[in-house]
Design a protein around this nucleic acid. Sequence first.
DNA 1: AGCACGCCGACT
DNA 2: GTCGGCGTGCTC
Length: 805
Amino acid sequence: MAQIGQILVDVPTMQTNDPYSYAIPTELEHQVQVGMRVIVPFGRGHRLVSGVVVGLSDVTSFDGKLKPIETVLDLAPVLNTELRQLADWLATETYAFRITCIQTMLPNLLKTQPKRQVQPTTTLTPGEMATYFPEGAPRDFDATKLDDATVAGLLKLQRAGKVEVVYEVKDKAAAKTTTGITPALTSAKLQEIAGEVAKRAPKQAELLAYLAQMSADKVVAQATVAKQAGVTPAVIATAADKGWLTKSTLEVYRDPFHQPVTPTQPLKLNSEQQVAVDRITQAIDSQKSENFLVEGVTGSGKTEVYLQSIAQALQQGRTALMLVPEIALTPQMVNRVKARFGQRVAVLHSGLSKGEQYDEWRRIDRGEATVVVGARSAVFAPVENLGIIIMDEEHESSYKQDENPRYHARDVALWRGQYHHCPVVLGSATPSLETRARAAKGLYTRLVLSKRAKAQPMPTVHIVDMREQLKQQGDSDFSEPLMTAIQERLDRHEQIVLMLNRRGYSSFVMCRDCGFVLKCPNCDISLTLHMDTHSMKCHYCGHEEAIPHVCPNCHSKKIRYYGTGTQKVQQALEKLLPTAKILRMDVDSTRRKGAHERILRQFGEHKADILLGTQMIAKGLDFPNVTLVGVLNADTALGLPDFRASERTFQLLTQVSGRAGRATKPGEVYIQTFNPDHYAIQLAQSQDYERFFVTEMHMRHQGSYPPYYFAVQLTASHEEEAVAAKAMYQIVDALKQGLSKNAIILGPTPKAIARVKRKYYYQVVIKYKQEPQLRPVLEQIRQAAQVPARHGLSVTIDSEPMNFM
DNA sequence: AGCACGCCGACT
DNA sequence: GTCGGCGTGCTC
């Protein structure tokens, strides 16, 4: 038996990023296994912290006295070999702490909570009791929540030996239970008693009859028994007292999606879909870790390809993981999968309660669910024997986590595909440039679905030049052609979706006469307006200039910051169309749980004529009666100081256009823009992804951006601007010394929103092709950042950032 | 993160 | 002379 456990303690620092050795007490010898969570004493005060066993051994290189493991929290490991390896890889890749990676991989309920309490060791004076233990002892001792005087007083008492601090680690993991019922006597005996009591206690007789027909070894929930036997819990209680039945604790799953679903059969595939399914199933059958890009226009039936590929994996006795963006994880979407695979499906996403998440996780862990559908973090689902991994809408930026560990679910999916020797299928109508470029290099097998499955025509897309509109009808959010089109639909009782692109609100200036956006002379990136310094700044190179009052291009005075809100638009629209019913969907109206679905359902039931919203309406809705889609301001995302601005704009416009005319009625799209000549808008109009890809790749090449270059972003933040800036300058020095001449270092520059939550943010971006010293240099920076972290300076490293802002 | 040790200023 | 400030190192 192993004497020593290697434990990763839940103390996220550089010094504890490697496992610590703990002695395994004899009574725990047979319990401790690799992958389990434990509680261990840590530090001088022997405070208790949780940790994860990552190894067992008989020896240790640590030559001090080992402390013993205090408690084992799990009956079975919560992390298998694959996930432990994945955690290590993730930590290296994302420059995060190993324990942080592990926490991210586990469901919320398995994250423990350390607790501190104080209690007197001797009898305190009544005065001391009144001040420090007004509600009795022991009391919670959380220094961050108590006032300084109380903390100081308690610490003083502690030093005097009058009180002691006790530690506790709370494990929140709790399976939901209910009372279960089992017959305690034989069927014959029960029937006999039933006969005896039938006259004076008819309810008891009914219950006895029910028990008599139950199989003796089966446990049935009390609620079920009560319902089926037609008795109250009181009757059951009496029966238990008389020894007719035994009660036990029954573990139940919380069912997050309880609506019954009608099973569906695989649909007939068109030739392109068939080819895709064939290629993917070949890879499944031959256990190859081949990766695919399924590039399919909206409505081309990508989902059916996914479902039939999953079916093939299941048939091979393997499991499937399907990732979708959080915003697309609607009940409709889930039901579509459940309708095909029934009870084998588990769903993981943040909309579930913590208990529900934990239950779904356990169903997967136990192998009861073999198809997992979920958002970003579901990529860590404890599925074994994976036969296929699917990532739908792979270009979605929500797949990248914007806190530590800053991982991209796509990279994790590819890693797991390798591990399981199974295909990874990336699907999108508008693949990210990175993915499409990899497909071009032959790293992914490209499968194209060019035809809409139901052979609907693609919508007609009109571009409305808002510069002209401005001249003709003045400053309005609604152009004349769009209003005419809206009125037409209203007359025909058809529905309209209007999208307001709110990204980049007010952060850049644009000329309303010619569409000119002020750009950086060095970077070909829009300058950002800073009201604090009254200047325009480039967030890549730090270039700064005055806010223009006349347009440098056409000398118009109508150059101003651009932006408008959904509420304002709704009011304006109500004025223009007093009879139309308008539903608004944005962050404000969807804050409450379920509000999102409710608005969509109302719209689906035609309770409103117009759905007005932000980006979120662009994703995955399918309303047959929508024949008009209007984009009020296509430009705002274009103005963002980000090299992905064009890509995002193209993707968004293409996606939202796909919302029009999905059924029998042909659709029309109106895109209002001040930049009608911009390639992202022009190519969105012609729905020409290929040309967009080629054009944008050229731009990326010119600017030395991904996918031609790799990128790492470093950020320093502090309450004092000078501290953050100075730290960043030092980091740049270290980078310049450690990296080759070929690495491009941009910055330091203040972040677009330089001050958030009373902290100033400075950043630097490194672009590189090959930089073997990068990892060691960044590790060194990470190490060095430990010391000033004490004074509130935090440094973050983001490999392949989604936003350069 | 949190605790102890250690070295400087204002108090009995 | 001590109490206590927080700056620094370490936690199996």
